[in-house]
Amino acid sequence: MKVSEKYPVEIRFRIENVSSIYFTGSEKKAIELMNKYNINYVYISQLEELMYHVKLNKLEEKIYYELVYQSSVQIYKIKNS
């Protein structure tokens, strides 16, 4: 069953937007989407790295993100939040 058949429209949009936050090369677009959903923190574990192919160097951009926790997971605070 495809995502489009399994979930209502608003859930599909959210799933697509979450993917866009991780995949986009545009910091502006990622920040806009995070603001839309009132996201203040980004949690990165092995699961997110595998599912979304997260490039941690993107989150290490100190203009937009602040690393607030690092162990087996990383948690970044969105600076404009």
Rank of each mutant, 00 (worst) to 15 (best):
E48W: 01
Y22F: 13
K55I: 04
S45F: 06
V73S: 13
L59Y: 10
H53C: 13
Q74K: 03
K29H: 04
S71L: 11
N17S: 11
I15C: 08
L67D: 01
E27L: 07
Y69A: 15
K58C: 05
V3I: 10
V68M: 02
T24R: 13
Y37N: 01
Y41V: 01
K2D: 06
V9D: 14
L50V: 07
Y37T: 03
Y65K: 07
I21D: 11
E5K: 13
N38S: 13
Y69G: 12
S26I: 08
K55R: 13
E5I: 02
K28D: 04
S45A: 12
S19G: 09
N35S: 15
V18P: 01
Y37P: 04
V18C: 10
M51A: 00
E32G: 04
L56V: 08
R14K: 12
T24M: 07
Y7D: 10
E61K: 15
I15S: 12
I63C: 11
V68L: 03
I31R: 08
A30P: 12
L50Q: 03
N57R: 13
S72I: 10
K77H: 06
M51I: 00
S81R: 00
I78A: 10
S72T: 10
Y52D: 05
Y64W: 01
S20N: 14
I44T: 03
F23R: 12
I31E: 11
K6S: 05
V3F: 15
L56Q: 07
E27Y: 15
N40A: 08
I15M: 03
L50A: 01
I78T: 00
Y52P: 04
Y52L: 01
K29T: 04
I63G: 14
L56M: 02
V18H: 06
K62T: 14
V68F: 03
V68N: 02
Y76N: 15
S45P: 05
I31W: 09
E16G: 10
I39D: 09
I63H: 08
T24Q: 08
Q70E: 03
E61N: 14
V54M: 05
Y37A: 01
N17E: 13
I78Y: 05
E61H: 12
Y41S: 07
S19N: 07
Y76K: 05
I78W: 05
S81P: 05
I15N: 06
L59E: 00
L59R: 01
K36H: 04
S19L: 02
N80R: 12
Y43Q: 08
E49T: 05
Y43G: 12
N57A: 15
Y64K: 06
R14N: 05
Q70L: 14
K36I: 12
L56S: 02
Y69M: 04
E5F: 05
I39L: 02
K29A: 07
E27G: 14
L50T: 10
I39W: 06
Y65S: 06
S45T: 07
M34V: 12
I75W: 03
S26W: 02
P8V: 03
L33G: 06
K29W: 06
M1E: 13
E10D: 10
S72N: 11
V42K: 00
Y7I: 05
T24C: 07
K79N: 01
E49G: 12
L50I: 11
S72R: 15
L59N: 08
V54I: 12
V9L: 10
S81K: 03
K79Y: 00
